[in-house]
Design a binder for these strands. Structure first.
Length: 157
DNA sequence: GCCAACGTTGGC
DNA sequence: GCCAACGTTGGC
């Protein structure tokens, strides 16, 4: 199976790419996704070794900061069972968990973080889900072509 | 099962 | 801070 590519959004105030680089093993559990479409991707589609673009949302400027890799495939998000967590979901059952996550590990920091404006101006990225109006999905598929364009530009500086 | 009301996301 | 777009909830 060919590896696939994804984009995850994070508010840098909450958890930035720099935070991921500083984390133990540069790895984190991507907790807190509470949207069924994104849940399905996390649970069923994201596979070990898949590439992830790390996007900073709700900040100025919004950027793709670097890449990460899926290091553990979908498993139940523990925070849904933690009453003290912001992500607690009283209706989710241990024997039938509602929310899933994957673990991601930082891979390459972009020498040249790509701003949203730059993405919009880049040929070949016109159809990118991220750039569509109203695209709020916090985990999105990225095509091979988009991945190639973005990582080339980001890593070459 | 419809749909209005509501809450959230996230670009601007 | 505003508000459009979207997802979810809940009354009926």
């Amino acid at each position: 199976v060919a590896k696939r590519y994804w984009l995850v959004k994070s508010e840098p105030e909450v958890f930035s790419f720099a935070d991921l680089l500083k984390a133990k093993d540069k790895t984190t559990a991507w907790e807190g996704v509470r949207n069924y479409q994104a849940r399905n991707l996390l649970r069923d589609e994201m596979k070990l070794g898949d590439g992830v673009l790390y996007y900073h949302s709700s900040t100025d400027p919004q950027i793709i900061a670097g890449t990460a890799v899926v290091v553990r495939e979908g498993y139940p998000d523990p925070s849904q069972f933690d009453e003290n967590s912001d992500y607690y979901d009283a209706d989710s059952k241990k024997e039938d968990p509602r929310w899933f996550l994957v673990d991601i590990k930082a891979d390459r920091e972009f020498k040249h973080p790509l701003t949203r404006d730059e993405l919009k101006a880049t040929k070949g990225l016109e159809g990118m889900m991220l750039l569509k109006k109203g695209a709020r999905l916090s985990v999105q598929p990225v095509t091979d072509k988009e991945w190639a364009i973005i990582t080339k530009r980001g890593l070459e500086g």
